[in-house]
């Protein structure tokens, strides 16, 4: 009986946790880069979810896509895609892909998750394709999945300054990423209007993110937890992603 109760609680917890993310969501952002103190719109970022069926399973396809606005294409064309196929109930990834096209730089990365082993294939421009097998922790996920898992965290129970740690695999390395709850703030959320949001600070021991509390995400303080605003600080500068349109929620 205890086992069944535990199973029920676990199943219920997973179900509640997974409710924030739905299949058929589409969030469109305007990505702006800070140039001499002025935010200059550079690209459109799309985050979409879709149900994908294989012969045995039903998976959730999570994708993030960055495309430069047409006026920038002749100067610096970006066509980046980050995607992950996850179990819709547990958010455990099966496949993660990263396809980078930034100006003259290209990189393709594919991770196949089998249990706690990842088979990675990486192809950089002017370099031969490399394949590697490495082990990861039981709770390690890719970056796309982590972004969506963040929405499944119940921040309403968090106290200001409280953190939640995730383990992420990026560039074939595992690292801890912490999400610190910084309270509530009202921000503009595109077609959703002004929304009260959970302000979350993202930190990781990596040279890819700069500064303390400079990488921030505002998630709407409702059941959907839509990322309304994202501010980033990376080695090449700072910028932000502003939600322009949210549909399918």
């Amino acid at each position: 009986m205890k086992k069944w109760t535990l199973l029920f609680v676990l199943a219920f917890t997973v179900n509640v946790a997974a409710q924030a993310v739905k299949s058929g969501e589409k969030f469109v952002y305007s990505a702006a880069y800070n140039m001499s103190g002025l935010l200059t719109p550079l690209a459109q970022v799309k985050m979409e979810t879709e149900t994908v069926k294989t012969s045995k399973n039903t998976l959730l396809h999570l994708s993030c896509e960055a495309t430069t606005f047409s006026k920038w294409d002749s100067f610096f064309k970006i066509r980046d895609t980050y995607e992950s196929y996850v179990n819709p109930a547990t958010f455990k990834p099966s496949l993660y892909k990263r396809d980078i096209f930034e100006g003259k730089y290209t990189k393709k990365e594919k991770y196949l998750f089998k249990g706690n082993v990842i088979t990675s294939t990486v192809k950089k421009k002017n370099a031969p394709e490399t394949t590697k097998k490495f082990s990861i922790g039981a709770n390690t996920n890719d970056v796309v999945t982590i972004l969506y898992q963040l929405r499944n965290v119940d921040f309403s129970k968090f106290k200001t300054g409280q953190t939640k740690t995730f383990t992420v695999v990026f560039d074939e390395k595992q690292m801890n990423v912490s999400a610190k709850y910084m309270g509530k703030e009202t921000v503009k959320a595109g077609n959703l209007g002004s929304k009260e949001c959970y302000k979350i600070s993202i930190a990781a021991k990596t040279d890819k993110l700069k500064g303390t509390d400079k990488n921030l995400i505002w998630l709407t303080a409702d059941a959907r937890k839509v990322p309304a605003l994202i501010k980033f600080s990376i080695p090449v500068g700072t910028g932000q992603l502003t939600l322009t349109n949210a549909s399918g929620i």
Partner: peptide, 16 residues
């Protein structure tokens, strides 16, 4: 890319 992904996922499931 999506067609390739489905092939990879089917192969992965075949190994399970």
């Amino acid at each position: 890319s999506k067609n390739e992904d489905l092939k990879d996922l089917e192969e992965l499931e075949g190994l399970e």
